[in-house]
Design a protein around this nucleic acid. Structure first.
Length: 563
RNA sequence: CGGGGCGUGGCGCAGCCUGGUAGCGCACCUGCUUUGGGAGCAGGGGGUCGGAGGUUCAAAUCCUCUCGCCCCGACCA
């Protein structure tokens, strides 16, 4: 049923008042989705068609690397999550069944799939194994946002690989890289595969697939041959002009009431980069540590956490004043706690730092000579930093997929083991891999929409072609439109036929809002010229020269040339 | 969790300050006209004003509580 007169496609002239992101506005306006609650969305027929096209691309490429599709439940016994140690996660929905047994709603499926594999896999001959499914995920997000970009319930493709050892995992991981590259390519997205944080889960490697666009929640650092999430990105800082070389011993300068880098730099007539920014933290276990970065840099909490191999928190004012000095005037000289020195700080130059006395700073401070330190790369990269001699730029992006080497994180608690050739029991090595089809849709909309609406990549569009019939019902031009409809369907195209009894303006506007890659107009002019009027949605380019009587094949061939 | 904002017909909004018949645009229904870029005329239908309690002769409007939703930040296996 793809006659628009009978199809549920409730388009809106105005976006919902609370929508901010472009994809959110357009998906609602084009009649693809409707909100049910915060972070909860229904897909209307056309939106679901796009979602399912995305799903099918993912399915084909995972099957191509030997993935086996299955289905695991959303509702799970809490026991599984207690065993993996993830029951305490705040985002995990928890509930009781009628007997009072604790249950959870799956936010991902490592626990279930590993418990299955622990049962089935006995021998090295059973490995490797790649399993996947498309299943609803439930996450009690602190802040759902931007339409389908961050929701509390969404469908995810999650796949899991099981191998004998780290080398096997690497092979499975590489196969997923190939499949993912093809998937996002086929989806018509601009995307990057970037290095990403392995987090506290202790995996041995991870990448994210990032689709750059304005609504993105993540930032990626990019340079020729380099792509990384800013959470883990590493680069050479640009030098601070006019930074003095190490010289005489530190001298105290009076800085009454000046507690910020900007204030001190301004008062002393130097660049912010001439200062040491002190960031006191308390590492898990209780040790107070002073983290130093350049005045114009920011501490990167992911990199710091990874370096420490432990969690940490910012020190309280009480802790700072008890063990370091007055807040706003702290520095590394003379303190008795460990100092972490960011790699971008020079040991040959002199910096300005807090004096650990009220209303005073020190100039001429030299790392090593004036205080002991440990080196670490713990700062956020900045636009213009160098990687391999090339300046990086930073772009906002949507995370559309991720791949993660889990290692034995789950095989241990679930005792997923096998017997090797020597009869020795070994742990299975795992990888896990996610893709959010809804985010692919939203990213495609963000990347290619124009002022008229959505402009789908042809692989994701709800329909390949939309026919706009201009003219009254029961006229020769309507009969011609009917014939074109049949002709396009006959060559295998998915066609949406706007046969509504409306003016042409509304139909054109709706067609461009929905954004199918081709729009075919059939009206009196068509009959007069004997030629089909075709508009390529991307760029809104008119395409001429298709004869009405052989429309089907010609339109199909044109469609195949589209992005 | 901190900060800010908003709940009035399907969508977008006004009305609230200063209490007194619930209104506008679009959409919808009927009829006629119109049909190549969001038509015209005429008639019509639809709203417990998020919810509860209170003040008052009278509450969309004032007060209290509460629920929901959005944005920024924090957080994001």
């Amino acid at each position: 049923m793809t006659r628009l007169s009978r199809y549920l496609l409730p388009t809106e002239r105005q976006p919902p008042s609370d929508a901010e992101a472009l994809s959110h506005k357009l998906m609602v306006r084009a009649g693809l989705i409707r909100q049910v609650g915060s972070g909860l969305w229904s897909y209307l027929p056309a939106g679901w068609r796009s979602h399912e096209r995305t799903v099918q691309i993912i399915r084909e490429e995972l099957n191509a690397i030997g993935g086996q599709e299955m289905l695991m439940p959303v509702l799970l016994p809490a026991e599984l999550w207690k065993r993996s140690g993830r029951y305490e996660i705040d985002e995990l929905f928890k509930l009781d069944d009628r007997k009072g047994a604790p249950m959870v709603l799956a936010m991902t499926h490592e626990e279930v799939v590993t418990s299955h594999v622990a049962q089935f896999v006995r021998s090295y001959r059973d490995l490797p194994l790649t399993l996947y499914h498309f299943q609803t995920k439930e996450r009690d997000e602190p802040r759902p946002r931007a339409g389908v970009l961050r929701t509390r319930e969404f469908i995810m493709k999650d796949s899991y690989t099981f191998d004998r050892d780290a080398e096997g995992l690497q092979i499975s991981y590489d196969a997923h890289i190939d499949a993912y590259d093809r998937i996002f390519e086929r989806c018509g997205l601009e995307f990057y595969r970037v290095d990403s944080d392995v987090g506290m889960m202790g995996g041995s490697g991870a990448h994210e697939y990032m689709a750059p666009c304005a609504a993105g929640e993540n930032e990626v650092a990019l340079a020729p041959g380099y792509a990384a999430n800013v959470e883990v990105a590493s680069a050479v800082a640009s030098a601070v002009p006019g930074l003095p070389m190490a010289g005489g011993l530190p001298e105290r300068v009076s800085t009454p009431g000046l507690t910020t880098v900007a204030e001190v730099a301004g008062a002393l007539g130097v660049l912010p980069g001439a200062l040491l920014k002190a960031f006191p933290i308390v590492v898990d276990g209780g040790a107070l540590t002073l983290v130093l970065v350049r005045g114009d840099h920011r501490v990167n909490e992911f990199k710091l956490r990874n370096f420490l191999q432990a969690d940490f928190r910012q020190a309280s004012v009480e802790e700072i004043e008890a063990q370091i000095g007055p807040a706003g005037f702290i520095g590394p000289v003379g303190v008795s706690i460990p100092v972490l020195l960011d790699e971008s700080l020079s040991t040959d130059h002199a910096y300005i730092a807090g004096a650990n006395q009220p209303d005073a700073h020190l100039t001429g401070v030299v790392a090593g000579r004036d205080f002991p330190y440990t080196r670490a790369d713990i700062r956020n990269v900045e636009e213009g930093d160098l990687v391999g001699g090339q300046a990086i730029r930073i772009e906002a992006a949507i995370e559309v997929g991720n791949i993660f080497k889990l290692g034995t994180r789950y095989s241990e608690p679930f005792a997923a083991t096998y017997l090797d050739e020597q009869g020795e029991q070994q742990l299975v090595w795992m990888g896990s891999y996610g893709i959010g089809p809804a985010r692919i849709m939203a990213a495609a909309i963000e990347q290619f929409a124009d002022e008229k609406g959505i402009s789908w990549p042809r692989s994701l569009a709800p329909f390949d072609v939309e026919i706009v019939a201009v003219g009254k019902p029961d006229t020769p031009e309507r009969a011609a439109a009917d014939a074109v409809y049949a002709g396009l369907q006959a060559v295998g195209l998915d066609v949406l036929y706007d046969d509504r009894d409306l003016g042409p303006g509304e139909k054109f506007a709706d067609a461009e809002l929905l954004g199918c890659p081709l729009r075919v107009t059939v009206g009196r002019r068509t009959l007069e010229s004997g030629e089909l009027e075709v508009q390529v949605r991307r760029g809104r380019i008119a395409h001429e020269g298709i004869a009405l009587d052989q429309a089907g094949e010609a339109v199909r061939q044109l469609w195949q040339t589209l992005p």
